[in-house]
Write a protein that binds this DNA or RNA. Structure first.
Lengths: 211, 211, 211, 211
DNA sequence: AATGAATGAGCGTTCATTCAT
DNA sequence: GATGAATGAACGCTCATTCAT
């Protein structure tokens, strides 16, 4: 899918310099933001010279683009896979989509956070490119909502609003999740899906056949 | 020998110029972020020299702090007022809180967005201060949730998670809302409250007395 | 004529900072060339910080442009004035043009040398602009040659070649002239004019009316 | 332990790659100047890696030195040969010298241009060396002028000035000559010699014995 | 013969900030 | 209130060069 401009790396070493730089970029930009992260800090963190960073990436923006492309690609793949495995029921599909999205945003919260918040730091051309990827990704959520509305499984809520609300609440996970937290990823993901599906309010007692 | 060093009474208050600077800051920082906004741009937008900006604000960080304090104060006031007017019912209170929060994030989306995303651009001391304000503000939402749980009006969902989900979805409004959009603020706010309370899923038919 | 982007300076001080920077630029670029002259050297020579240079000139290229525009403007003015004062005779006009051109290239040899050799260091847009000025300037020499050919005062030599030869030989003065040399500017200028008009070869004896 | 450090036999000689590098250097430095030509561009033009350039030349300065030495050697040889073949007459000798110099500056204009303009880009030691070659080369022209003065064939014009004017006008050919131009090399060369010998001005009618 | 990877120095430029006027 | 002029630090980036392979 997304073109990546990294050089091929010798297999077997999991910590090639390019990868170390990538990790430093992700961590620093997550903590301070794109513009407040200097390549001098990146180099220092990796333990190399600034000029050496430029052997592996052609520019600072290309580093951010690498984050964008890797992240969007991996997120898209995971979500598509989980949704596909969930069958045809909109409720199951939405639960799967939320599960994939939320766990990704927790497990790879730094990259996901960057992908969600640093779009504006890209130049127009790159921004358009990435925005296109995001739009295609979000279209999958839209399709599930649409399907739910049409099948009568979902209440008729403004689709755009529902999408924004859902993504807004799920994306935020990347901002607060800590691996050492008291909840498992599955707990978080299923709570989110449950909340979005059923709301927080206690529903009145149901009389009649079980659903 | 040393010229007396005058500093303005209260940062950013009083004169028309201060207000113009404030507006320029808000707009530019909303569009590009704190670190990618230079005081040269701010001054140019206002039509004054860079040095003149320093008559009105002692530092760039103080400008961001002004946004933080104004915004948090006004948001807090509005939300507290609307919640107080809503009576004692947790559902009504939560609906009021969401209404206040969402309409504020739409009407003053630039400031609200900055308050939500630029905390990390503050120095530790200032950051702690603002974080305290935010915590106190969010505690109001927590209290409503707590009240709903205890009174049996809300399902027993992890409180922290519910809070994060609610704020995440409501804060995002500042990122996408446009005044020229097709929905009124009240529509957006009530849809959000409804969504958070009842979820998107169609509930089974209820037999029995109306609620 | 040429737009200059310098700020107006308080009259009376002959050594305003902008002027000191200009002089440092001219000297350093004359000695080492545009690309081998760093703004750090310029600043050091003037005794200010690098950043201060940028208060007076927006970019390195703008500094070279200032040299180009000042120099071409002054050279054009001087030559036009001297040629106009020479009357209608092509020999007198060419002598005057050579005089103006050569003395300018000697007196302000650094600037003239830069104007002659650093065109290629400008960006395409600026280069085109300056090249236009030069073309207009050289057209004056062409016109004199043309007039001489048509009036029968000059031998029919390829006009383009004659122009190139003349300017090539005169421009070079900026490369070797030293104020401490043994010849006066007028001696140099009149020798050049004489050489170009009559050549180095001894002409056969003339019998008949004096010319 | 230490790998033996091989260095090429003679800088830039022998292999085809060396020659390709030489040509790339000449073209790029002619177009942009020594300091604005990077070895990255050179390598890219040749289609090799930067490090590979260093197998063929020990340094960037050595590349320029190769241009200087090849060019001065070839120019000197050609001019000496043509002058020697011209016999004893100063007019014939000067015509021959101009012919050799001008045609060389046209045919190998890039190298000749570099040899004429990039002396200052060499370090003092190398500069002195090349300057010596140039001085010896120009001494041949001086000798011809001297001979012309003493024999009465040339008018008594300041010798240094005449030399500078002659070389200035002839060197410039490298800056404007294009192979596709309308004039042949011989036309250009003979026009230049004629111009320098007889000037542009029409001489009065000669009465008396033919010369 | 060639190259992947690295380096230290330096580049032009911009930054937030200061201060006398 | 406002500004012209300056500053020190840092920025992203490129340079010629090295060296083990």
């Amino acid at each position: 899918m997304h073109a990546a401009q990294r050089k091929p790396r010798v297999a077997g070493t999991g910590t090639a310099t390019s990868e170390l730089i990538y990790e430093a970029i992700v961590t620093l930009m997550y903590e301070r933001g794109y513009h407040d992260t200097s390549l001098r800090e990146v180099a220092r963190k990796v333990g190399i010279q600034v000029a050496s960073v430029y052997y592996h990436f052609p520019s600072k923006e290309a580093m951010l683009m690498e984050v964008m492309s890797r992240t969007t690609r991996d997120l898209t793949r995971r979500t598509e896979a989980e949704v596909a495995a969930a069958g045809a029921d909109p409720v199951a599909r939405l639960t799967a989509a939320v599960h994939a999205h939320v766990t990704f945003h927790a497990e790879r919260r730094k990259e996901a956070f960057l992908a969600d918040t640093e779009l504006r730091s890209l130049q127009p051309e790159q921004r358009t490119l990435v925005a296109g990827w995001r739009d295609r990704y979000e279209a999958a959520f839209s399709a599930i909502l649409q399907q739910g509305f049409e099948s009568g499984r979902f209440r008729r809520i403004d689709q755009r609003l529902a999408l924004n609300a859902l993504l807004g609440m799920c994306n935020e996970v990347a901002a607060w999740y800590r691996p050492s937290g008291r909840l498992t990823l599955d707990q978080i993901a299923s709570t989110y899906a449950d909340l979005f599906l059923n709301g927080v309010e206690m529903q009145p007692v149901v009389i009649g056949p079980e659903r």
